[in-house]
Design a binder for these strands. Structure first.
Length: 337
DNA sequence: GGTCAGGTGGAAGTTACATCA
DNA sequence: GTTGATGTAACTTCCACCTGA
């Protein structure tokens, strides 16, 4: 898979970025992930019924702060090439009739070709059709759920296409890792694009269509979500790093500016006997305001000394610190004299 | 209504395997 | 042929939530 990262053109303020937990699982994500408000737990901690509503909620989201585009390297199935924007999901649209059409290019059609050995897309294609018997291998607290999958195995007629791993040991306990075909992966990707979580019905339909076990589909979605989150974390990390660098540079510049001001003050002892001045940032207009205890007039004094406070300050910070000495924040020179 | 046990799905972390340089 | 890195399928554990008794 090839990754292409793209950052949003107009990112939200840094503060809002930090305030909101990153929601990485959006309805329109999958290939294009966006982070905005909401939290993972709000998504994950819900029942099956509410999960469906979650996926609907995800539809309405704010513009992304940081956007990660995951471009699938896998070739798109032929139907997708013909009409890339239109994919037919039987579990979404109930258009299984199209899927079963002879010569059709849906996943199952491709699978049949693969089983015939005429259109293997990769050396792993055969391995991907392995159907392992996990009835012994699997054990644990999820027995009922796994029984469900096992029952599904029994119900679906895959005897012909299922075969045990060539590398299984005598006990059949080896964990044979199969690789999904490009078509299967692409189809799962498209499904993930639609819904990054699956309800049982969707899982079953998808498994049936891809000729996989529901457990495999479930695992694939789990891993896909994990990969999505990991990539998004990397993007977030990069973004925060750049923010940190920017703030560090800003801090360095302000420190330098402060030193210059102090030097200027000490070089003008007569005119610059200023009372303690506090620079405060107005949170609404982002302008710096001064609070002085007396009515001294530093700008006028500075001008009289041959320079202007405005020009001096604007060398370093033209917008904010100049405002601190702008006429709206200090008294007129005449008033002082 | 409150409690508890069982079931379920997801996240996080890990393991194991396949592939490739 | 061997080896280390990498990607990823599959697993384990834990947690939160839901449901029925």
């Amino acid at each position: 898979m090839e990754l292409a990262l793209s950052l949003g053109d107009a990112p939200k303020p840094f503060s809002s970025f930090l305030e909101k937990p990153q929601k990485i699982l959006g309805r329109d994500l999958g290939f294009c992930m966006a982070s905005d408000g909401g939290g993972d737990h709000q998504i994950s901690r819900s029942s099956t019924a509410s999960r469906e509503s979650d996926s609907e909620r995800k539809g309405s989201s704010d513009p992304p702060i940081v956007q990660l585009d995951l471009l699938p390297f896998s070739p798109v199935p032929r139907t997708h090439q013909a009409n890339p924007s239109k994919l037919s999901f039987s579990w979404l649209t109930q258009n299984l009739a199209v899927a079963a059409e002879p010569g059709s290019t849906n996943i199952q059609g491709r699978r049949v070709e693969q089983l015939d050995g005429t259109a293997l897309s990769s050396p792993n294609s055969a391995a991907s059709s392995f159907q392992m018997d996990f009835s012994i291998y699997r054990s644990g607290s999820r027995s009922s759920k796994r029984d469900f999958d096992a029952n599904y195995e029994a119900e679906t007629d895959r005897g012909a296409s299922s075969r045990a791993s060539d590398h299984e040991d005598e006990n059949g306990m080896a964990r044979k890792k199969l690789r999904l075909t490009k078509e299967q992966s692409a189809f799962l990707e498209e499904s993930f694009k639609e819904h990054n979580t699956l309800n049982p019905k969707q899982k079953l339909a998808l498994a049936k269509q891809l000729n996989l076990r529901p457990r495999q589909v479930e695992v694939w979605f789990q891993n896909r979500r994990a990969r999505t989150k990991l990539k998004q974390t990397e993007v977030d990390c990069e973004y925060l790093k750049r923010c940190c660098e920017t703030l560090t540079e800003e801090n360095r510049r302000l420190q330098k500016e402060l030193q210059e001001l102090r030097a200027f003050k000490s070089s003008q002892p007569f005119y610059m006997q200023l009372p303690p001045t506090t620079l405060t940032m107005c949170p609404s207009c982002e302008r710096v305001a001064t609070t002085t205890t007396t009515n001294n007039t530093p700008p006028a004094a500075a001008k009289a000394a041959g320079g202007t406070a405005d020009t001096t300050l604007s060398l370093a910070k033209p917008t904010k610190l100049v405002a601190a000495f702008s006429p709206s924040h200090v008294q007129a020179p005449q008033a002082a004299s």
